[in-house]
Design a protein around this nucleic acid. Structure first.
Length: 315
RNA sequence: GGCGAGUUGGCGGAGUGGUGACGCAGCGGAUUGCAAAUCCGUGAACAGGAGUUCGAUUCUACUACUCGCCU
C-alpha cells in the first residue's frame, strides 16, 4: 500500500503559489527551504531535487531522531526512493541531538558532493546556518543535570548584569542555559553574544526560500495530515515505542507522542488525542510563522495558494 | 405532577453586596545549542425580567431551561 502521507505532500507540491514572483533556483547553489509544519516543504524539496538533483538535508530538530518517523512526518519510503535524504532518522531516540550536533553533521554536505537542499521547520537551526552563532562549548551532561536541579532564584544571582538584561529572566530554559555558560566558560552569555562564528552557509550563497502558508490554508491540512498519520500506523509506532517511553527524552517531544502513549495506556480516547495533537500542531505552526517573519524577512517568500508549483519555481 | 440541585466568557471552573479568580482554547509576540522546547502579552461572562438596597453577579420571590430523585 502506498503510504498516504506522501500523497498529501505531493498534492501540496502541485498546489502552490500564486501571485508570487517566480523564484529562480540555481542548479548548483545550495537551497534552503523554511516553512511551517504541514506546508509542503518536503514536497517542494523533492520537486527541486528531481528537477535538478541534490541531496535533501533535514533541518528539523525532531525529524532528526529515530523512533517517531510517522508522527514527525519524515519522508516515507516512497519519497526516500526519489532522492537522497540525509539527517533524517539520524540520532537515537534516547540521544540528545542539539543545534550543535546538527551543524556538525550538516557541515560535510556543504563542502563538495551534490548540492544540498536543506529543508526544515526549526527556525533556530536555519537562522544559525545563515547567521552563525557564538562558539560556546556544548553543555556536558553532568552540568545539565546539575542545572536542571536548580530553580530560577538559585541561578539568576550567578549571572552578570549584562546577561540579566539580555535574556528573559522568566524563561527557565534561557536562564538555565545562561547559567551553564557562565559555569562552563567563566564568561557571561552577553559577552559571548559579542562574538559569533561566520555562518556555515551565508544566505547570499544559497537560494533561501520561506514558504508563506496562511493559517486558513494550513489548518485543514494539519487536520488531514493527522488522519493520514493515523492511517499510516501512528499508533503502531507508539506501541513500538511504548516499552522505551520516557517523556523526558527530546524525541518524546514530538507533538502528539505523549497523547498517543496515553491512548494506548487507555488513558485518553482517540478523539481527544486527535484534538489535542491538532491544536498543538497549529500552535507550533504559529510559533514557526512568528520566527520566520522576524528572522527571515530577507528570504524569498513563496506564498502558497492554488496554482502550480512549477509556475513559481524556475529550475 | 411533587421534591431537590443547578444556570458564570468558546469550554472547564472559583468567588464576592461595591463591576468579575484561574485553567484551556483563540489572538499577538519573544527566542544564540533541550527549540515540535521554553517563555511573555491579551479580548471576552455572572439565564430572564422584577423586588430589597446608596449599590447586586452575589439577598428575595417568580419565569425559563438543565440534571437528579419520587409519584
Amino acid at each position: 500500500m502506498t503510504p498516504p502521507i506522501s500523497d498529501l505532500c505531493l498534492c501540496a507540491a502541485q498546489l502552490s503559489m500564486k501571485d508570487s514572483p517566480m523564484i529562480a533556483v540555481h542548479p548548483e547553489k545550495p537551497v534552503i527551504i523554511a516553512g511551517p509544519t504541514a506546508s509542503g516543504k518536503s514536497a517542494l524539496a523533492l520537486h527541486i531535487a528531481k528537477a535538478q538533483g541534490g541531496v535533501i538535508v533535514n533541518a528539523d530538530a525532531l525529524q532528526a531522531y529515530k523512533g517517531w518517523p510517522i508522527l514527525t512526518a519524515q519522508p516515507d519510503a516512497t519519497d526516500l526512493a526519489k532522492a537522497p535524504h540525509v539527517l533524517y532518522d539520524h540520532a537515537e531516540f534516547d540521544a540528545s541531538f542539539t543545534l550543535g550536533d546538527w551543524l556538525r553533521d550538516l557541515a560535510p554536505y556543504l563542502t563538495g558532493g551534490p548540492r544540498p537542499i536543506i529543508v526544515g521547520g526549526t527556525g533556530l537551526y536555519l537562522s544559525t546556518l545563515v547567521r552563525g552563532i557564538s562558539n560556546i562549548p556544548e553543555t556536558p551532561p553532568a552540568l545539565r543535570e546539575q542545572s536542571s536541579a536548580l530553580d530560577l532564584e538559585a541561578m539568576i544571582p550567578a549571572l552578570d548584569h549584562e546577561t540579566r538584561a539580555l535574556i528573559d529572566l522568566n524563561n527557565p530554559r534561557r536562564v538555565q542555559r545562561a547559567w551553564e555558560v557562565q559555569q562552563m566558560t567563566g564568561e557571561g552569555m552577553a559577552a559571548w553574544h559579542q562574538r559569533r562564528t561566520p555562518p556555515l552557509l551565508p544566505a547570499q550563497d544559497a537560494t533561501c526560500i520561506v514558504i508563506d502558508a496562511p493559517k486558513d490554508w494550513l489548518t485543514p491540512r494539519i487536520e488531514q495530515r493527522f488522519d493520514l498519520m493515523m492511517a499510516a500506523g501512528a499508533l503502531d509506532e507508539a506501541r513500538a515505542m511504548y516499552p522505551n517511553w520516557d517523556p523526558d527524552l527530546q524525541s518524546s517531544k514530538a507533538i502528539g507522542a505523549r497523547w498517543m502513549i496515553a491512548h494506548i495506556e487507555g488513558q485518553m480516547p482517540k478523539d481527544e488525542v486527535r484534538e489535542r495533537t491538532i491544536v498543538a500542531t497549529r500552535q507550533y505552526a504559529k510559533r514557526q510563522r512568528t520566527w520566520f517573519r522576524s528572522n527571515m524577512a530577507d528570504w524569498q517568500s513563496l506564498p502558497i495558494s492554488s496554482t502550480n508549483l512549477s509556475t513559481a519555481i524556475t529550475c
